[in-house]
Amino acid sequence: MDETGKELVLALYDYQEKSPREVTMKKGDILTLLNSTNKDWWKVEVNDRQGFVPAAYVKKL
């Protein structure tokens, strides 16, 4: 969790967005987890953008 109590995830792999609903991340990025109710796609925030990334590409910290 960060200082505001939000849950964080670590990008395990690079991911290039394939639609406007997704976000690009690089391996090693720390992202804010917004929603993990879907087992396949998690909603995150990175670089002031919100979108989805494959759940298998990130790990909760």
Rank of each mutant, 00 (worst) to 15 (best):
T32V: 15
K59Q: 14
N47S: 10
P54E: 01
M1N: 13
Y13V: 10
D2L: 14
R21Y: 13
K59D: 06
D48M: 10
D29F: 05
L12W: 04
D48P: 05
L33V: 06
E45I: 09
D48G: 15
N35W: 07
Y13T: 07
K59W: 09
K18P: 04
D2A: 14
G28E: 02
K26R: 13
T24I: 03
L10Y: 11
T37I: 08
D14G: 06
M1R: 11
V44N: 01
R49Q: 07
K6C: 14
S19P: 04
V44I: 07
G5F: 13
K43G: 05
K59T: 13
N38A: 08
T32Y: 12
D2F: 12
T24D: 03
P54S: 02
E3H: 14
K59Y: 10
S36Q: 10
V23K: 01
Y15L: 01
W41S: 02
V44D: 00
V23M: 12
Y15F: 07
M25F: 10
E45F: 07
K6F: 12
Y57H: 06
E22H: 06
L10H: 04
Y57N: 05
V58N: 00
A11C: 12
K6L: 11
Y15P: 01
V44L: 04
A55I: 03
T32H: 09
T32R: 13
P20Q: 09
S36Y: 07
D14R: 03
L31S: 02
T4K: 12
L12P: 00
E22M: 05
L34H: 05
K60A: 07
S19Y: 06
L33E: 00
Q50S: 11
N47G: 15
K39Q: 11
L12M: 09
E22N: 04
E22Y: 06
S36I: 06
Q16P: 06
W42F: 07
Y15T: 01
K18V: 08
A55V: 06
L10I: 15
L8H: 09
L61M: 09
E3N: 14
K26S: 08
K60L: 13
E45L: 10
T4M: 12
L61G: 03
N38Q: 09
Q50N: 07
L10Q: 10
L34Y: 04
D29H: 05
V58D: 01
Q16I: 15
N35M: 08
S19G: 12
L31I: 07
I30G: 01
Q50E: 09
M1G: 14
Y57G: 05
D48C: 13
P20M: 09
K59R: 14
R21A: 12
S19F: 06
K26W: 11
T4R: 10
L33R: 01
E3Y: 09
V9E: 00
M1V: 14
Y13G: 05
D48F: 10
N35H: 07
P20V: 09
L34F: 04
E3G: 13
E22T: 08
V58W: 01
N38H: 11
V53T: 02
K6Q: 10
V23Y: 04
S36N: 08
R21W: 15
G51S: 02
R21Q: 12
W41K: 02
G51R: 02
E45G: 08
R21N: 14
T32F: 12
Q16E: 14
E22I: 04
V46L: 15
D29Q: 15
K26Y: 11
Y13M: 11
R49H: 07
V46D: 11
K18H: 08
K39I: 10
S36F: 07
A56E: 09
N38K: 07
K39T: 10
E22F: 06
G5L: 12
D14F: 04
K26V: 09
L34G: 01
G28F: 04
S36G: 11
T37E: 14
K26I: 07
L31G: 11
V53A: 02
A11Y: 01
E7W: 13
L10E: 11
L10D: 01
D29W: 14
G28D: 05
G28V: 01
G51Y: 04
V58C: 15
M25T: 03
S36W: 09
A55G: 04
L61I: 14
Y15I: 01
K60C: 10
N47W: 10
T24C: 06
L61F: 09
D14M: 03
F52A: 03
S36A: 12
K60V: 11
K27F: 05
L31R: 01
I30L: 07
R49E: 05
V46I: 15
V44G: 00
E7Y: 11
M25H: 00
K59M: 15
V9Q: 00
A11D: 00
V9H: 03
G5E: 13
L34W: 05
A55C: 07
K27C: 07
R49V: 07
K39C: 10
D2P: 14
E17A: 15
R49P: 01
A55D: 01
T4H: 12
D48L: 10
G28K: 02
S19N: 12
S19I: 04
S19W: 06
M1E: 13
K27R: 11
K6H: 12
L33P: 00
M25V: 08
Y13E: 09
V46W: 08
D2I: 14
T24S: 15
K43P: 00
S19M: 07
P54L: 04
P20W: 09
R49K: 10
T4I: 12
E3W: 09
T32G: 08
S19A: 08
T37G: 09
G51T: 02
E45C: 12
Y15C: 02
G5C: 15
Y57R: 06
D2W: 14
G51V: 04
K59H: 09
V23W: 05
K18S: 10
N47Q: 11
K6E: 08
G5D: 12
E45S: 10
Y15M: 01
N35V: 08
M25G: 00
Y13Q: 12
V23L: 15
A56N: 12
D14E: 05
G28Y: 05
K39N: 10
R21F: 13
G51A: 03
N38P: 04
Y57M: 11
K26M: 09
K59P: 01
L33C: 07
D48W: 07
T37Y: 09
N38V: 05
W41I: 03
L31H: 03
V44S: 00
L31A: 07
L10V: 15
K60G: 05
L61N: 03
V46M: 15
G28A: 03
D40S: 11
S19K: 07
K43A: 08
G51M: 05
K27M: 08
D40N: 13
K59C: 15
K27A: 12
K60Q: 08
I30P: 01
V44F: 00
